[in-house]
Design a protein around this nucleic acid. Structure first.
Lengths: 250, 250
DNA sequence: ACCTGAACACCGTTCAAGT
DNA sequence: ACCTGAACACCGTTCAAGT
């Protein structure tokens, strides 16, 4: 009764469906469905075919089942999308590099590992990340992309234990979220995500835009096209950590 | 011939449809359609009813016309969405506070005015901004939310004229984009955007989540709910400007 | 208990037909 | 020249029916 609605951070939401329905996996083994398998298949389908190809009917076919059968495990498409976001963020819990840092070392190392863990998820699922970025959060003060009550609690706890004030820890959560969201959404979108179905290009049309009216763009296009995402991420992160250090002493 | 495809930054794309079809507005006046009117109505419809309500059929009805009539001005829904993003960003050109700063004062003031101009647009169209943030850009090196070749050129020109190196100006464009995207997407999503159709809430269910397992969240929820978006935006912006100043001397 | 088929109310889009 | 109607191939979702 404590876990109302479908709380993403409740144990049953973290792949605990098998615990609630222990008989579901017996017999035919991988054949029978459960919510976790449906969400996992949805993530794979998005990774392989893009967000637009995720329809109830396609997902059903992908699982070898009628589309309508999915409604037994997922109340509807909106809930499916929320579940996808949740299940992707949940991968953080399985990341040993992030997990080990929770109660160790200094807070800077914790934030570094956490940031890189989220970045690995974004790069592993570039087609899913826009969903992580833009789905309305469960509460208005939960900010993408770290949209998990459990990680928020861990974040605040770590900073508070290292001498951050209440307002400092809260301000740090906000700044950390902005940093991650801006950098990762741009990095992922530069990968050319979800440009729609097949985007047939007319080979007669010149492939490059006409930049003749923009001399700087023309000259700097090679520089603009270079990929420095990794080092920019690290440099921006270090700058952020320096800024946040002010809250640690206050 | 120079303006291939539908270049958003070509004069014809910036509300120049009336110049191409000067006869379109005669006679019945506001009655007859053109592309600019269709895009403008689409923005108003999204602002009023949310992104999900923007369908070809709804937009047609909103304009007092059959849905299929829209295809005379808009090649399809994807192009409509691109046009919406373009027309919203174009509002920057009409912002005197931004426009006057292009060749005046110092580069810091230019970036401040530009940033606040984009922020005003985001807050004026919170339901449209996720589209600005996530639509695939025209070229991979064009970064949301400042996704206009003309503004990119203006941005680079201003910084280069103030002594920035080439790589410094390019790095500044990237950092500026990340900053804007992260802050504005979070600010806009905190406004509770596009939670779907009407989101009927069961009044019997408790409205607040169960935070009993998260003591810090429970204690800090009031602090987390406070809105400091404006000052955080300004402080982050000033910090960014300080960082970018390194490129000015190099 | 779990899945299926038929059906409903929507979509985007094409195309011949109206005026 | 501009708009409309009918039609097609899809959606999400409900519900009675199958096994």
């Amino acid at each position: 009764m404590a876990a109302k609605l479908t709380d993403p951070d409740t144990p049953a939401g973290r792949g605990g469906a098998a615990a609630v329905l222990p008989a579901a996996r017996r017999g035919a083994g991988a054949k029978s469905l459960d919510r976790r398998r449906v969400l996992g298949a949805a993530v794979v389908l998005i990774d392989e075919q893009g967000l637009r190809q995720l329809t109830m009917r396609n997902l059903g076919a992908y699982l070898g089942v009628d589309a309508m059968a999915l409604y037994r495990y997922v109340p509807g498409r909106e809930n499916l999308l929320d579940g996808i976001v949740e299940s992707v963020i949940d991968e953080l819990y399985g990341d040993p590099d992030v997990h080990m840092s929770a109660e160790s070392e200094n807070w800077q190392e914790y934030l570094r590992r956490l940031a890189h863990g989220v970045r690995r998820i974004a790069l592993a699922h570039p087609q899913v990340f826009p969903l992580v970025a833009t789905r309305p959060p469960a509460a208005p003060w939960v900010r993408p992309p770290l949209r998990s009550l459990r990680w928020m609690e861990s974040f605040l706890d770590t900073l508070l234990r290292h001498g951050f004030s209440d307002v400092g820890a809260v301000a740090s959560y906000r700044a950390f979220s902005s940093f991650l969201l801006g950098h990762l959404l741009l990095e992922v979108s530069a990968l050319g995500v979800d440009t729609g179905p097949v985007e047939e290009v007319d080979p007669d049309q010149p492939r490059t835009r006409d930049l003749s009216s923009y001399p700087h763009l023309q000259r700097l296009e090679p520089a603009l096209s270079e990929d420095h995402a990794a080092v920019e991420f690290d440099e921006s992160l270090e700058n952020l950590l320096t800024r946040l250090a002010e809250y640690a002493s206050a």
